[in-house]
Design a binder for these strands. Sequence first.
DNA 1: AAGGTGGTCAACCGCTCTGAG
DNA 2: GCTCAGAGCGGTTGACCACCT
Length: 309
Amino acid sequence: MGRSPCCDENTGLKKGPWTPEEDDKLIKYIQKHGHGSWRALPKLAGLNRCGKSCRLRWTNYLRPDIKRGKFSQEEEQTILNLHAILGNKWSAIATHLPGRTDNEIKNFWNTQLKKKLIQMGFDPMTHRPRTDIFSSLPHLLALANLKELIENPSWEEQAMRLQTEAVQMARLNQYLQYILQPPAPAINPDMAALSLFNSLKEGSVLSQLETPPAPPSFSAGGGSYLQDSVPFSHLPDLQTINQSCSSKEEAPMVQGSPWMQPSPPSPAAPVPVTENSLSNTGDACSTSSYGGTQMWSELLDDPLFHEIA
DNA sequence: AAGGTGGTCAACCGCTCTGAG
DNA sequence: GCTCAGAGCGGTTGACCACCT
């Protein structure tokens, strides 16, 4: 297979913007003969262009049924709806918007709709509330630390504190990698979570995110206690994330995720496995959400996040 | 007035898909 | 079933323009 040779060959064909004369030739030829074979068209029409270039010029610009100008509210909504279903299938989306070309829709999406969604706090790929907090956590924490550094005159204290927090963050990172890695290791992340989070709670930045403290009264079945006792318990269930992410539509987003890198078992000693914990096939799926939307929005409403932002 | 910056959009690049031989 | 040419598609680039400093 591979690439069409027509644009590959160094044939001295013209590139770049089309002149009105070229447009005129192309329009007249197609009106008279139809486009037929695009490859053959340039020669027949007397154009020093490759067929591909002619096709693009015609379909994206010269076609008589092209609708130009701003997208209407309805069109915008249609694009959003279709993109949520079809993803970046611009040509498929274009078939539902008479007079609009895939290129035009693609440009509109990239320059305007995408930004709008991001500003509204939605992931433009999944159309769901953004949940990439973990990926930006280090930056947020750095900002938080910077803020404190500026406000607090005691550099020695700050240095000590930062050092402690660095260790804690390293452990947190290790933990996150651990619970998000593939299921192979037969360990129970819930126990690790309890241990690690308890150790992180005192005096760390994490404690600022905390929900009211609760005793670690968990059942042997594992899992449910997290909901009650762990600072991040108001976040969505990672298993739900994984189930959601295993769907074909979202899968590409997690390929090669750093969260998937195998990592040594957490020092916060895991305990034998339960069936539930095993299904945690782990990727961050970091930019998407699902049933836990509300919980995420609660987190996002946390004053700390606003303060940092 | 000049230079910098950001947004828009036409056009290109390179890959995949499709159908004929 | 395989190969190849042509068509189509999505991502990216770069020219142009408007606005800002």
